[in-house]
């Protein structure tokens, strides 16, 4: 029988050295909620398992310009942590709506990003908050905007010897909302999800983010729709236009959960709703 090696390093240098040794033959394990189903059903057969839960990467800090979130911070921590609730409420909301309590206790923010599911909940909120990720390898580290990280379903720019160590969420003002539609109410994957952030200057929209989940091969920033709002006075009409534009930028597929037709139709309503509800939200002030 083929040997599978298991590593649970406590030092980052150790972890990156192991990754450099095994390259794409190693599977990185954090909460296990995405990897274990694949292992259980023999969909992946790694030569080595690198458990990164003992690297001390489960923490949330408040820096001068950004929240720094360790890669193995669990979804449950994101949902309940006061700093996330205060400075990134859309992320807390996405965390709260993702999976069940038992999944939230295990699933990590780094895993949600690395798995690169088009339906990932946390990623949609993180994109609306202009988050970036820190990638570490034995030869160095780099910071990458999350918007530049995804290439396709379960495809990213992450190199086989790289590890996500931190997520940076810039502290910036704005009103945000995260909404999600599933096929049922409890424990459900997104049929369509949306995160929005509005930076307002009186009733003028200074800047906007509209991000869709499950509506394209990767979580999608709707840049043309955002542009429609930028510098404009926010009206119900404009919000309707922006929602229509956001959906025009999407390219959803049909699957077990919904058809592309439904995703577009309900997605438009969801974007409108998110924008309208964001206006009523308390403004985040860094």
């Amino acid at each position: 029988m083929r040997e599978v090696l298991y590593y649970a390093p406590t030092e980052l240098t150790e972890a990156t050295a192991i990754l450099a040794d095994h390259r794409d033959k190693a599977a990185v394990l954090a909460g296990g909620t995405d990897l274990l189903p694949k292992l259980n059903y023999y969909e992946v057969k790694p030569h080595a398992l690198l458990y990164i839960g003992r690297l001390g990467l489960s923490s949330i800090h408040n820096g001068s310009s950004a929240l720094t979130i360790g890669a193995t911070t669990t979804t449950a921590d994101l949902a309940t942590h006061h700093l996330v609730q205060q400075y990134a409420p859309a992320l807390a909301q996405a965390a709260r709506l993702s999976g069940s309590v038992a999944i939230q206790n295990a699933a990590t923010i780094g895993g949600n990003i690395a798995n690169a599911s088009p339906a990932a909940d946390l990623v949609v909120a993180l994109l609306a908050l202009d988050a970036s990720v820190r990638l570490l390898s034995h030869s160095g580290q780099r910071d990458v905007h999350l918007a530049d990280f995804f290439l396709g379903p379960h495809l990213t720019i992450l190199q086989p010897d790289e590890l996500i160590t931190q997520i940076h969420v810039p502290l910036s003002p704005g009103k945000t909302e995260f909404l999600k539609l599933g096929r049922r109410k409890g424990q459900t994957l997104a049929v369509v999800s949306v995160a929005v952030r509005l930076q307002l200057d009186g009733d003028l929209c200074h800047d906007a983010r509209i991000v869709l989940g499950s509506m394209a091969p990767t979580p999608l920033r709707c840049r043309t729709a955002e542009h429609l709002l930028r510098g404009q006075k926010i009206t119900t009409d404009l919000i309707h236009q922006a929602a229509t534009q956001a959906i025009a930028e999407s390219s959803p597929i049909t699957d077990q959960r919904a058809t592309a037709w439904y995703r577009k139709k309900a997605g438009e309503a969801l974007v409108q709703r998110a924008l309208l509800q964001a206006l009523d939200k308390k403004e985040v002030r860094p």
């Binding site: 298991y6 394990l29 909460g31 296990g32 909620t33 274990l36 189903p37 292992l39 259980n40 059903y41 398992l49 458990y51 449950a76 069940s100 309590v101 038992a102 999944i103 206790n105 295990a106 424990q187």
Partner: peptide
């Protein structure tokens, strides 16, 4: 064996987790 049903749930350090998804 997929984390969906919850029948394997145990407490790990007091918090519920899926034992089928815990290495």
């Amino acid at each position: 064996d997929d984390g969906e049903c919850g029948a394997c749930t145990v407490l790990l350090d007091g918090e519920p987790v899926r034992s089928c998804l815990t290495l």
